[in-house]
Structure formats: C-alpha cells, structure tokens
Simulated assay, not measured.
Amino acid sequence: MATAHPLLLLPLLLASAWAQCPAPADLKNADGSKICAQLYTDDSPYYAQCCGGNVLQVQPGNDVPYIPLSWNDKISSLVVAPRCDLSVWSRTGKKGYSRKFNSGVVYRLQEIKKGLFGNWDNSISAYYCKCN
C-alpha cells in the first residue's frame, strides 16, 4: 500500500485552511432552519480566501442597534441568505450611514462605498436582518 509523501499533502492542507464564503442558500442552522446572514471579521485580496476569522450568525428578525464590542467595526465580509435583507448602520443606535444588503456574498466590504470617501470595511455598528 503506497502512502502519499507529506510534502505533496501540504497544498491540500493549506487550501482547506483558507476560508471560503458559503453559498447564500447554504446558510442553515443545525436544525435546518434558515440563518438570515453570516458576518465575518476577515477578508482577503483573493475571493476564494474571504469570509474568514470569527463568524457571527444573524438569525431572521435579529434587530441589534448596539452590536457587541467584540464585533463593533470589525466586519469585513458577509453573506446574506436568499429572500433576506440585512440592513446595517455605521454608528451604534442605528445612526450614521446605512446600507441594505440583499441576498448574496460580499467578499470584501472595502469595495462597497460608504459616503463620499469611505467604505464599509470595519464599519458596521448596528444591524437588522429580515427574511420573507
């Protein structure tokens, strides 16, 4: 029986360690119910490596005007489930700039404009998620 050389397995191990954004339709809880959105602390210059770091699962109907400090201004990529909308604000208490994200993947929030000169990378401080 032949065994693979350890160096040949290294690229496979590294590839599995990279984050990859889930398909919007795959956002499900363990019991099969829908997750409205998933928020991630990390992104990458490479789309295949986005949606990494810590993950915050947002359930349908979650209304969070004051995001926990460990998540405030730390979100860099997100995925929104089909038939769901994620509304976000740049300041706590649902103040500041706002934006609505429909179903889909946003690999890098730095590519989404916020105001004249800013972007949404590390700028989310409140959110509301609803599904139809």
Results as ranks from 00 to 15, higher is better:
residue 6 P to Y: 11
residue 10 L to S: 02
residue 11 P to F: 06
residue 12 L to D: 05
residue 14 L to K: 03
residue 16 S to N: 09
residue 16 S to D: 09
residue 18 W to D: 04
residue 19 A to R: 07
residue 20 Q to F: 03
residue 21 C to L: 04
residue 22 P to L: 06
residue 27 L to G: 01
residue 29 N to V: 01
residue 31 D to V: 05
residue 32 G to R: 05
residue 33 S to W: 07
residue 36 C to A: 13
residue 37 A to I: 03
residue 37 A to W: 03
residue 38 Q to C: 01
residue 39 L to Y: 04
residue 41 T to V: 03
residue 42 D to H: 10
residue 42 D to T: 01
residue 43 D to E: 13
residue 43 D to W: 12
residue 44 S to W: 07
residue 44 S to A: 11
residue 45 P to W: 14
residue 45 P to G: 13
residue 47 Y to N: 11
residue 48 A to S: 08
residue 48 A to F: 10
residue 51 C to G: 04
residue 53 G to D: 05
residue 54 N to R: 14
residue 56 L to E: 10
residue 57 Q to G: 02
residue 57 Q to E: 14
residue 59 Q to N: 13
residue 60 P to N: 06
residue 60 P to C: 00
residue 61 G to I: 03
residue 61 G to R: 02
residue 62 N to H: 07
residue 64 V to H: 04
residue 65 P to Y: 13
residue 66 Y to I: 00
residue 67 I to D: 02
residue 67 I to R: 02
residue 69 L to A: 14
residue 69 L to F: 13
residue 71 W to R: 03
residue 71 W to S: 07
residue 73 D to K: 05
residue 76 S to M: 02
residue 76 S to G: 03
residue 77 S to R: 12
residue 77 S to E: 09
residue 79 V to Q: 09
residue 79 V to H: 12
residue 81 A to W: 07
residue 81 A to M: 01
residue 82 P to W: 14
residue 84 C to Y: 10
residue 84 C to N: 08
residue 87 S to E: 15
residue 89 W to Y: 15
residue 89 W to A: 05
residue 90 S to E: 12
residue 91 R to C: 10
residue 92 T to W: 11
residue 95 K to T: 13
residue 95 K to D: 08
residue 96 G to M: 08
residue 97 Y to T: 01
residue 99 R to T: 00
residue 99 R to Q: 15
residue 99 R to K: 15
residue 100 K to P: 00
residue 102 N to G: 15
residue 102 N to V: 13
residue 102 N to T: 15
residue 106 V to G: 00
residue 106 V to Y: 14
residue 109 L to M: 10
residue 110 Q to P: 00
residue 113 K to N: 10
residue 115 G to F: 11
residue 116 L to H: 10
residue 116 L to G: 04
residue 117 F to H: 10
